[in-house]
């Protein structure tokens, strides 16, 4: 356990030394993953699918404020859908606009929760979302999580409709809306994710010993049990082995991410500037460490060396170093 904490402290020191660069790199990687995930789901336009467009948009997202990433993702998705169906692109655009005016405009940081849904589904760890939100956020995150799941299901319904429909009419739109909101799997998923998130949140905040470390495993077990129950009740036909493997991977990913998120949140370096009558001050405020990392050089102390060991070491031999008789000992 100490080794883990020492490793964490080294990570904090590394992060503090290179905080600005690392933040840019993380943002770039997450943008890249997000646009590849969108391409995987609705990548209809071959021009937009090209890697240099994806890299270019990710770089543009770096330069602009963080909230713009959500807008870029919505625009990118709508542009892909517009390539095959104007009607569905209008639908997608209206729904994204609706989400913005109702919620994201006032709580922009929750937009990342909505973005995280297709990303986690694309990398096959969707169950990490409620586990992670339970560890780092409050139960109010159920709102963006539900919105994200609904948007994801809507996009899946659109891909099915695009694959099967022949006319680009209002009928396609009706089919998509019907398929999305009559899908029981969506409501089951929202319900189960909500229960798991609240459970993890309650355990994390309880005063029981090791509650913080038990929250994710217990949440993962609850997730599996609840999905098995819904599989039994309804005709979902969930692949049980896939559920188990994905939940274990999700729990591992959630544990790692919250480990770094919680740690790095509190290790954020602040850069401040101010002046008085005599000086300009450029201050870098670095939060203190909780454990000092050892810079250890192990020195072995032995009682006496034997003559052979001294010969091997190439040290000068002095007779008094070695006991000649029992009396010397």
């Amino acid at each position: 356990m100490t080794q883990l904490l020492v490793f964490r402290e080294r990570m904090i020191q590394f992060y503090q030394r290179h905080a600005r660069l690392l933040k840019l790199v993380f943002r770039f990687l997450i943008s890249l993953l997000l646009f590849f995930a969108i391409n995987r789901e609705v990548g209809y336009d071959p021009a937009l699918r090209s890697w240099y467009i994806v890299v270019g948009i990710s770089i543009v997202g770096l330069v602009l404020p963080q909230q713009v990433l959500l807008f870029l993702a919505a625009l990118y998705t709508t542009a892909h859908i517009y390539y095959v169906s104007g009607m569905l692109a209008l639908t997608a655009g209206l729904i994204f606009a609706l989400l913005y005016f109702v919620y994201i405009r006032f709580v922009p940081e929750h937009g990342y929760v909505i973005l995280a849904v297709p990303l986690l589904f694309a990398i096959r760890i969707p169950y990490a979302l409620p586990l992670l939100l339970g560890m780092v956020s409050a139960p109010v995150s159920l709102i963006p999580m539900s919105c994200g799941l609904a948007v994801y299901k809507l996009i899946q319904a659109m891909t099915v409709a695009i694959g099967t429909a022949t006319d680009d009419t209002v009928l396609m739109y009706n089919q998509v809306i019907q398929q999305t909101f009559s899908d029981r799997e969506l409501y089951f998923m929202i319900g189960i994710f909500g229960i798991v998130m609240v459970l993890v949140y309650c355990i994390r905040n309880s005063s029981v010993a090791y509650a913080f470390h038990m929250a994710v495993p217990i949440g993962a077990i609850a997730n599996i049990v609840l999905f098995l129950i819904t599989n039994f009740i309804s005709d979902s036909r969930i692949n049980v082995w896939q559920l188990l493997v994905q939940t274990i991977l999700s729990a591992g990913a959630a544990y790692c991410i919250q480990f770094f998120l919680v740690v790095l949140n509190y290790s954020g370096t602040e850069y401040l500037q101010f002046e008085d009558e005599e000086y300009y001050y450029y201050v870098k405020a670095v939060p203190k460490m909780s454990i000092t990392t050892p810079n250890k050089h192990v020195k072995r102390f032995t009682t006496r060396l034997t003559e052979e060991e001294v010969m091997e070491e190439g040290l000068p031999i002095e007779e008094e170093d070695f006991p000649q008789s029992e009396e010397d000992i």
Binding site: L272, Q273, Y281, A285
Partner: peptide, 13 residues
């Protein structure tokens, strides 16, 4: 003085 001013500057983010 620098400590006090640093805390004030932190609030003025």
């Amino acid at each position: 003085k620098v400590r006090i001013m640093t805390r004030i500057a932190s609030y003025e983010q």
